[in-house]
């Protein structure tokens, strides 16, 4: 089991780095698909099959297709020829990230997780299995405990749509 986890973890990380590092946007997009699949694999290891399926269908499926559509509308040769704007700050950025990474690894290995009274919660694999399926549990939790944030997120999606309409609207900016 551990081996599978590390396998997914490492492929996920490597492909995530690939997303930022590749110069060809199509390669980046494909690396992103790999990263999303690895995440889905980790979800399966955590007994969250439903999330894994969503990850593959929505992200790796629908959203990536949209990405690729947009990329096809662009001239990739031009994109590749664009100068990289962040070359000068690169050593600085890598330095800060490295320091932060070391700190984080140190702190996380030293820390204790799941120590609170509430930490042994009710969303364990056994409990979820007892009520039926993953999707069922997720639905129940979303519509009970997380009802208010759930509604707020629906407004958030509306805002994203209205905003996109605003930015694409004809006739704005003509004096």
């Amino acid at each position: 089991m551990d081996f599978v986890f590390y396998l997914f973890g490492i492929t996920g990380l490597v492909s995530a780095v690939g997303v930022v590092a590749f110069r060809n946007p199509i390669h980046s997009a494909l690396a992103l698909v790999a990263a999303l699949f690895s995440t889905a694999g980790i979800y399966i290891l955590l007994d969250a099959e439903f999330l894994a399926v969503l990850e593959v269908i929505i992200y790796a499926g629908a959203i990536m297709v949209l990405f690729l559509f947009v990329l096809m509308c662009l001239n990739i040769r031009e994109l590749k020829a664009l100068p990289q704007f962040n070359k000068k700050i690169r050593p600085f950025a890598i330095g800060i990230t490295a320091i932060f990474l070391v700190d984080m690894v140190y702190l996380i290995t030293k820390s204790q997780f799941g120590v609170g009274e509430l930490a042994t919660g009710k969303y364990t694999s056994e409990q979820v299995a007892a009520i039926g399926s993953n999707a069922k549990a997720l639905g129940q939790v979303l519509y009970t405990r997380y009802l208010l944030p759930f509604e707020a997120i629906s407004l958030l999606l509306l805002v994203a749509m209205i905003g996109a309409i605003l930015l694409m609207k004809e006739g704005l900016g003509r004096k």
Binding site: L148, A152, I153, L155, V159, G163, L167, L172, G173
Partner: peptide, 25 residues
Amino acid sequence: DLISIFVGLELMAIPCYFLTGVFKK
């Protein structure tokens, strides 16, 4: 709850991103 705070924060921030770019020309 940190979750509702986070969602509220995003609901505040995302309109602001759009409003900043409203003068799109």
